[in-house]
Design a protein around this nucleic acid. Structure first.
Length: 231
DNA sequence: GCGACAG
DNA sequence: ATCTTGTCGC
């Protein structure tokens, strides 16, 4: 459903050279916008994830109703990796197939949720910022492990959080979504702010550490990968 | 130079 | 990310 902003679609968005990719991130980073996004106004949330096999990958997008957590729509895309995994250049590997999957969605989600970081990135332009800027829609990221920055251990209860700080800047939040369970890292991508993002993550994580949209996308991508492997 | 390093 | 079973605990 979402489309790359025409102005950006005319640019060279997928460099093959790592240095060119870093330069592009630095240029696009200035387009990131951070502002509140009322969680109560969010109806549909799309979770994104990618699973890898020996030679191919499967990108999945699952749209969940924020109120009921029921799955509203979903899409998958099979592809061959075109960029290696390089810390800091994650988007160049996962965004192309993810965008292809998003195009197949029959609905327009209010917010997109990435499995990775946004501003918590060396050039302040992680996967969530990259997707957000390309389609100019609200996006943020939730990661399972640390990448850049430091954060103190949050309190033991659900909802406790600490700032994720990198080079003197608050680039995200270490958030505990369940009592006594290892926290997750939330960082803004585009058109949302940290408070809105964390509030949404809590609402979308009623039972598991990984919020529903991303958890469903993770399950769907592996299921599809297994299915294509047996075929 | 060394260690760290989203998925 | 992926290779991988059972098991301890709420």
């Amino acid at each position: 459903m979402p489309h790359i902003t025409p102005e950006l679609a005319a640019m060279e968005l997928w460099p093959t050279d790592p240095d060119a990719a870093r330069a592009l991130q630095s240029r696009l980073a200035s387009r990131v916008r951070v502002h509140p996004c009322d969680p109560d106004a969010v109806r549909l949330v799309a979770g994104l994830d990618v699973s890898y096999g020996p030679t191919e990958l499967v990108a999945a997008a699952v749209v969940v109703d924020a109120a009921t957590l029921e799955v509203t729509a979903q899409a998958t895309v099979r592809a061959t990796p075109t960029f290696p995994y390089v810390p800091g250049l994650f988007a160049f590997r996962e965004l192309p197939p993810l965008l292809a999957a998003l195009e197949q969605l029959p609905v327009e989600p209010d917010v997109y949720l990435c499995d990775g970081y946004g501003l918590a990135h060396p050039r302040r332009f992680g996967l969530a910022c990259h997707l957000g800027v390309l389609v100019d829609r609200p996006v943020f990221g939730v990661a399972k492990t640390a990448f850049v920055g430091d954060a103190a251990e949050p309190g033991p209860r659900r909802g406790s959080a600490t700032d994720l700080v990198d080079r003197g800047e608050v680039v995200g939040r270490c958030l505990r979504v369940h009592d006594g369970v290892k926290p997750v890292y939330v960082s803004v991508g585009h058109r949302v702010d940290l408070d809105s993002a964390c509030e949404l993550v809590l609402r979308l994580s009623p039972r598991y550490r990984i919020c529903e949209p991303i958890r469903r996308a993770d399950q769907l991508s592996r299921r599809e990968l297994a299915a294509s492997g047996r075929a």
